[in-house]
Design a protein around this nucleic acid. Structure first.
Length: 653
DNA sequence: ATTAGGG
DNA sequence: CCCTAAT
């Protein structure tokens, strides 16, 4: 047997980094290793590394500028990430300093007075203690793999009882929640159609999370995250679901209503206390967290619950049945038009070259049949990877390096520390030199960044800071001045050269990736250095979806400017690509043929995109009749088998 | 410079 | 993600 652990080594700083003092976390250096049965540490595979990094990434991404000021919620969320009780195996996070958590909890409690009973503060009782590896105490916390593990279990074993129960429960809730609209039965009825597909209908329409039973909450959780949970904790579930749907840690534990996968705040009074300190623009400006205050504060949840219910559920039933009938006709005709309207392009140069290559290879006898795409692809791939020709392509041959931590000497792949690392630069100088007096948001943002910074900056070699400036000059400082209203940032931009601001409220430091990328691009002629693959975060996906909902598909540059201002590494092309993938995913993964069986489930390191989001994607795709699914439908008609199986990278984070 | 599409 | 055509 083997146990996978993520071992963390903390660099102690005499409590200087206490949260209370400067708002930053204790820096923790994580290193991913695999602990074999005999206790030896073995470097992980690249996939594992990436997976964990993604996990960490996600965590760090959470308090993105949108959530400036909600520090306590960041912690809450952080705790939740670590806390979830229903874990069994997989990677665990070992933290050498158990006090960190309690610190966080304390802080959380302190700030979070309105939610004194917030259960998410519970310290997990199922912590496993790993001994002897470190002088400090080690707490294992829930990792990432377990999530997937759960998901597998859930997809493989249909739980009819749960579904049935949720059906009846849904009715109950409908009764309790609404005075009219008795067709609510249509909603629950569909939930039984596919047993293995999460019942997203539970999130369809307007649902008061407060009124759900634990089981319903669990179902909603499953609809949100695509995996099951055994957590019995209502508050936890509610918060988690809310966070999932709103993609924010800025959630409240009660008073929230889900309407079509979006969190609708019913009660303005329930707003978090921290928000009051910030200008309202801050909250409203974030397209992501759209707290729509429906009605006045004294309006009760139940009253408006039923309001949207009827039409929503009708829509949902239609949708779940597949493409509605009346749409079929119009879409059919539209398809042709669209297909004709689709951009035509002549074969690319590369395509021609590839053909030529194939032929030459074929003539030399190295490649048997030029028609076989697979073989062709392999050849091309090999050509691309051949290391010897490009000496400076450092990415190809990284064996392992010896690394020591905790007195252990371990071989660690270079890849694991080649990149990663969030902000690689401390803002101290920036703060000192350029005090943004009039802009409290910026101040808070910087502080938050510092908090984030502290987590990672310590294990980052300072070497990257050198090319940073150089790079900043080259690329104009990576500054996004899209909607800058005041000029006071510009001083900072001259100094730091790595500040990206939009709306005067989003600040972000350039990542080493950017540097590597630009460097590679300018240095080496043809980008043999690929942009580092950054797995799409759930939050990013949500931002994208929201952006599309807001600006419409195709407005990638707009979306990037407004919704992705804090993600300098996502280009508009990236957004476009991701959206395309999401579309595919929404069409394959949600289709009944797939029977909800998550494709590629062989690889448990990949988290499937929550079905709820996919549904939103699908909605948006249907809503925008111009392109999307129609064009795709044409295409799929040709090679439907491939698509039906849902291969390809779509649908996963 | 952006967008769409193929790979 | 990358590349390139089209706009």
């Amino acid at each position: 047997m083997e146990v996978d652990t993520l071992q963390g080594a903390q660099e102690t700083k005499n409590g200087e980094n206490d949260f209370e003092e400067n708002g930053s976390l204790d820096p923790v250096v994580y290193q991913l290793v695999r602990v074999e049965g005999d206790g030896t540490l073995v470097p992980p595979t690249e996939d594992e590394v990436l997976q964990i990094e993604q996990f960490l990434d996600d965590k760090v991404d959470l308090p993105s500028i949108d959530d400036v000021g909600n520090v306590e919620d960041f912690f809450t969320n952080d705790c939740m990430l670590l806390k979830e009780p229903d874990f069994e195996e997989g990677y665990s996070e070992l933290e050498t300093n158990g006090e960190i958590h309690t610190q966080q909890f304390d802080a959380d409690l302190e700030v979070d007075r309105l939610k004194p009973s917030d259960d998410s503060l519970d310290i997990p009782s199922k912590c496993t203690v790993v001994h002897d590896h470190k002088p400090d105490k080690l707490n294992t916390e829930q990792g990432d793999n377990n999530i997937v593990h759960q998901d597998n279990a859930s997809t493989e074993t249909p739980k009819s009882t749960v579904l049935n129960d949720s059906c009846s429960a849904e009715k109950e809730k409908a009764d309790a929640c609404s005075r009219s609209v008795n067709n609510s039965s249509t909603g629950p009825s569909v939930s039984g159609v596919t047993s293995s597909v999460p019942d997203f209908s539970i999130l369809r329409g307007e649902v008061c999370l407060d009124n759900l039973t634990i089981r319903e909450l669990q179902e909603a959780f499953r609809a949100t995250f695509g995996r099951e949970t055994t957590v019995k904790d209502k508050l936890w579930l509610k918060r988690r679901i809310t966070m999932g749907l709103t993609n924010s840690c800025d959630v409240q534990s009660s008073g929230c209503v889900v309407k079509d996968y979006k969190i609708v705040c019913k009660d303005a009074k329930h707003k978090l206390p921290t928000i009051e300190g910030l200008p309202k623009v801050e909250v409203e400006a974030t397209s992501l967290v759209r707290f729509q205050v429906l009605g006045s504060g004294n309006e009760r949840d139940t009253s408006s619950c039923s309001y949207y219910r009827s039409e929503d559920q009708q829509r949902s039933s239609n949708r779940l049945k597949g493409v509605s009938t009346d749409n079929d006709e119009s879409e059919g005709t539209l398809q042709d038009e669209q297909g004709a309207a689709k951009r035509l392009r002549k074969p690319t140069k590369r395509y021609i070259e590839e053909l030529a290559d194939t032929e030459t290879l074929d003539s030399t006898g190295k490649l048997s049949s030029p028609g076989k795409r697979a073989a062709h692809g392999e050849v091309l791939l090999r050509q691309r990877v051949t290391p010897l020709q490009e000496v400076d392509s450092l990415s190809i041959t990284y064996p392992t390096r010896k690394d020591t931590f905790g007195g252990f000497s371990v071989h660690v792949p270079y890849a694991s520390r080649m990149r990663r690392g969030r902000p690689r630069r401390n803002f101290i100088s920036f703060l000192d030199d350029d005090p943004p007096v009039e802009c409290p948001e910026v101040q808070m943002a910087v502080e938050t960044m510092l908090g984030k910074d502290g987590e990672h900056v310590n294990h980052v070699s300072s070497a990257v800071e050198v090319p940073l400036m150089k790079n900043a000059e080259k690329k104009g400082g990576h500054i996004e001045t899209a909607e800058k209203k005041g000029g006071h940032i510009e001083t900072a931009e001259k100094k730091g050269g790595h500040i990206e601001t939009a709306d005067n409220k989003e600040i972000r430091s350039i990542e080493a990736d950017d540097i590597c990328r630009t460097d590679a691009k300018t240095k080496t002629k043809r980008g043999l250095k690929r942009k580092h693959h950054r797995a799409w975060t759930l939050s990013e996906v949500l931002k994208l979806v929201d952006g599309v909902a807001q600006f419409g598909p195709g407005k990638w540059s707009e979306i990037r400017r407004l919704s992705f201002a804090s993600y300098s590494y996502r280009t508009s092309v990236d957004l476009k690509d991701k959206w395309r993938n999401l579309l595919r995913a929404s069409q394959t993964q949600l289709s009944p043929e797939n029977d909800g069986v998550c494709p590629r489930k062989s690889n448990p390191s990949i988290i499937p995109i929550p079905p709820a989001i996919l549904l939103r994607v699908k909605e948006l795709a249907e809503l925008q009749p111009q392109a999307g699914n129609l064009a795709a439908a044409i295409k799929f008609s040709g090679q439907s088998s491939k698509v039906a199986q849902g291969r390809g990278s779509s649908g996963f984070l």
